[in-house]
Write a protein that binds this DNA or RNA. Structure first.
Lengths: 215, 215
DNA sequence: GCGGCTGGTTTGGTATACCAGATTGGACCC
DNA sequence: GGGTCCAATCTGGTATACCAAACCAGCCGC
């Protein structure tokens, strides 16, 4: 149940229903959802662990309002995790897994201009998660998932930028080909190329929207 | 308070007082420590997040008993995190931080054959944590700390191997010099060299002690 | 009028009570 | 004698009650 509450809260935070910087009062939110404080508390801890809310001793938790540097820092870690995934996956991925990665890439190609950006973004996350899953490294999979959750908002806002979509598609294809060729060096290079624009996108979006910066 | 309980539990797990595979009953352990179930539950969640205990829905949590593969997987992630730390630290570390890393190295050199292996290991962890801290990347610091906690036992057992100590000392020096030279490529290479034996050490120790393997 | 203090209220932290599913031990049947 | 079923009990999950610290508003003194 706590997991379900965390899921709802997470969506609300990432969609912006719960504004960054705002407090989350246990009682209030608990009874709004018709549950007790106990699972609500647990849900908040889960989100705190993901970095979406910030706990303060003896104070109400607040929705995290990460600064640009914090987001970039987190992207750097995510980047490193995906590099490791790509390297490992070259050695450990099954042909079926590589095929599924290719299929996801094709799906993204096909639906790119049809479906809305949220659904498209979900597909993009699945593509990346599939690569990580192909590493067959459970710890890596879990840590990567945690960072994906934490960065959902920032990555989503970055991925909206239409101008870069065609490039993203090309890069997905390149990553898939490098994986299929079982070439770790090329795979890592392509993942690097895929991440490179993200730093700039996030930065520029942060500058323009400027809804935050402090905690 | 939950944090304090988690601290105690963590020590007991890592020292082996709580045997891997054993269940941790909330009521039992709570009243043994004279606290309520509520903070005990929270402590258990913290440790579960660290990977030291394993939660099972509607079942008692059990002390994690990681298989060799799981440990190696985690070391791989730790390895990647430290590589990233080294690379970033070359650009971001202050001279004072590099000096502190060098000082920790000297301390380890000096006390290597004097103090007991637990204290020595604490110093080793400080050395590595100092490098990560020099990256000035909070997310990286936190994730690294989580993996250090998770791998405490395995790394400790590996570090006990006296035969390799001299090599470890040399590698610490090499890492420090590469950092001081602000040379990312060399830093990463030296960190690689430092990690390489760990995989084998853990594997060989796992084979000999053979207290586990399953979950 | 303004700042600091104070009491009531809010809120997170902890303890306790209750519930439903899981476990287990034993009795019963084959 | 072995297997199966059932109930007493144990255990995690949830709800509620209580406490102490933090917040806030209004009051008092300057």
């Amino acid at each position: 149940m706590a997991e379900a509450i965390a899921y709802d809260l997470r969506r609300e935070i990432l969609r912006g229903t719960l504004v960054p910087g705002e407090t989350i009062k246990e009682r209030e939110n608990a009874e709004k959802r018709g549950v007790s404080r106990t699972p609500m508390r647990e849900a908040i801890r889960i989100l705190a662990q993901e970095g979406l809310v910030q706990l303060r001793p003896l104070r109400s938790p607040v929705v995290a309002n990460p600064s640009l540097k914090e987001i970039i820092d987190q992207v750097r870690v995510l980047h490193a995790l995906e590099l490791l995934s790509g390297e490992l996956a070259c050695a450990t991925a099954t042909e079926a897994e590589i095929a599924r990665i290719g299929h996801l890439k094709d799906e993204i190609d096909r639906l790119c201009d049809i479906i809305d950006s949220v659904d498209l973004f979900e597909l993009d996350m699945q593509f990346h998660a599939a690569i990580v899953a192909a590493s067959h490294n459970q710890a890596l999979i879990e840590t990567h998932r945690a960072y994906m959750a934490r960065l959902w908002r920032a990555r989503y806002l970055s991925a909206r930028i239409r101008r870069t979509r065609r490039r993203v598609l090309r890069q997905h294809g390149a990553i898939h080909r490098a994986l299929a060729a079982r070439n770790p060096r090329r795979t890592k290079a392509e993942i690097d190329a895929h991440f490179a624009p993200m730093y700039k996108n996030i930065e520029s979006h942060f500058k323009t929207s400027e809804d935050s910066g402090g905690n």
